[in-house]
Simulated assay, not measured.
Amino acid sequence: MTTQAQVIPKFGEQKKAFSIDELKRLIVAAKSISDLDQAKRYLCSYFITCADPHGVFWWDPDSKSLKHVIDKNIGKLIRPITKAFYTQPEQGPSQKTEFNIYKWFMVENTNVCNATCDPHKQRIFRSLTGQLYLNIFPGFLHVLRPISTFESTIHLVVKFIFSHIQEIWCSGDWNLTEYIIKWLAGVAAGRKMYSILYLKSGQGWGKGIITDFIQRSVLGSRHSTCL
C-alpha cells in the first residue's frame, strides 16, 4: 500500500491544531526520502486538495469543522519547507535531491477529491468509478444507538415529548402521532424526506418547543433553521 493510500483515512481525525513547527521538525529529522512519509502523513491529516470546489480543505480541530481555502492563500498555512538529500554513486560526485513539502502537496500529491455532503458516508470514500470524495457533512449532535442503551431519565423525557406531540400537535390522534414520530426519526437518521410538516395554530400553543429541541440538541443549527 502506498503512503498516499495510508494517509487518507487519517484526514480529519487530529485533535490538536496544525503546527508548522511540527511539520518542519518532521522534515528536518528525516534521514532519507522514505523518512519523509511521516511528514506527509502529518500534513495530509489536516489538508486535502479538491477539484470541485477548487482549492484545499483544511481540518480545524478547534471548531471540529472543514474550511475551504483557495489555492493562492494556502501558502499561509503550508510553507515551502525544503530538505536536501545527498546520495553517493559508485562513480562521480554525490547527487543532490531536494524535497519541497509545498510542491509535493500541491503538485505531486495525487489525492485530489471532489466535495460532497452525505450523512451516510464516511469522511473519505471512493465511488464505484474510483472517484475520491471528501464528505463535508459535519455530523449530527446525536449518536444513533439502540433505545435500550439510554438511561431511564432519557426515556421519561422522550415520553414527555411524545405526549406533547400527541396531545398538542395531533389533538390525541395516535395515527397522526405515529406518522409524525416516524417522520422526525427519519430526519434524525439523515434520510431524505419527501414531505414536510406544516403546523398552524395560535401563538403559544407549543408548536416550536419540539422543533427547537430537535434543532438545538439533535440535528444542530448547522443543518437546520426550522422544521
Rank of each mutant, 00 (worst) to 15 (best):
residue 3 T to V: 09
residue 4 Q to F: 04
residue 4 Q to P: 03
residue 7 V to C: 11
residue 9 P to T: 14
residue 10 K to F: 15
residue 12 G to K: 05
residue 14 Q to D: 13
residue 17 A to Q: 05
residue 18 F to T: 08
residue 19 S to N: 11
residue 20 I to C: 10
residue 28 V to D: 14
residue 30 A to Y: 06
residue 32 S to W: 08
residue 34 S to T: 15
residue 35 D to L: 08
residue 38 Q to E: 13
residue 38 Q to V: 13
residue 38 Q to H: 15
residue 38 Q to Y: 14
residue 39 A to P: 05
residue 39 A to L: 04
residue 42 Y to F: 15
residue 44 C to N: 03
residue 45 S to T: 10
residue 50 C to W: 01
residue 52 D to T: 12
residue 52 D to P: 09
residue 53 P to A: 14
residue 53 P to F: 15
residue 56 V to E: 11
residue 59 W to K: 08
residue 60 D to T: 12
residue 64 K to T: 04
residue 64 K to L: 11
residue 66 L to K: 02
residue 73 N to D: 15
residue 73 N to M: 03
residue 74 I to R: 09
residue 75 G to W: 00
residue 75 G to L: 05
residue 76 K to N: 10
residue 80 P to V: 01
residue 82 T to W: 05
residue 83 K to M: 05
residue 85 F to P: 02
residue 87 T to Y: 04
residue 89 P to Y: 10
residue 90 E to S: 08
residue 96 K to N: 06
residue 98 E to F: 04
residue 98 E to G: 00
residue 102 Y to H: 03
residue 102 Y to T: 00
residue 106 M to W: 03
residue 106 M to Q: 09
residue 107 V to E: 13
residue 108 E to W: 08
residue 110 T to M: 04
residue 111 N to S: 12
residue 113 C to N: 04
residue 117 C to A: 14
residue 117 C to V: 09
residue 118 D to P: 01
residue 119 P to G: 03
residue 119 P to R: 02
residue 129 T to L: 05
residue 131 Q to K: 06
residue 131 Q to H: 03
residue 134 L to W: 02
residue 135 N to I: 00
residue 135 N to A: 07
residue 136 I to A: 09
residue 136 I to S: 09
residue 142 H to Q: 14
residue 142 H to T: 10
residue 143 V to Y: 10
residue 146 P to C: 12
residue 151 E to G: 08
residue 151 E to L: 07
residue 151 E to W: 03
residue 156 L to I: 00
residue 159 K to S: 12
residue 160 F to E: 13
residue 161 I to W: 07
residue 161 I to S: 06
residue 163 S to H: 07
residue 171 S to P: 03
residue 174 W to C: 11
residue 176 L to I: 14
residue 178 E to Y: 09
residue 181 I to N: 01
residue 184 L to M: 06
residue 184 L to E: 09
residue 184 L to W: 03
residue 185 A to L: 03
residue 186 G to F: 08
residue 189 A to S: 11
residue 190 G to S: 08
residue 190 G to N: 07
residue 192 K to H: 08
residue 195 S to K: 12
residue 197 L to M: 10
residue 198 Y to P: 00
residue 198 Y to C: 11
residue 200 K to H: 12
residue 201 S to Y: 07
residue 202 G to N: 11
residue 206 G to K: 12
residue 208 G to M: 12
residue 210 I to P: 00
residue 212 D to K: 08
residue 217 S to R: 06
residue 218 V to C: 01
residue 221 S to A: 03
residue 225 T to G: 05
residue 226 C to P: 01
residue 227 L to P: 01
residue 227 L to F: 06
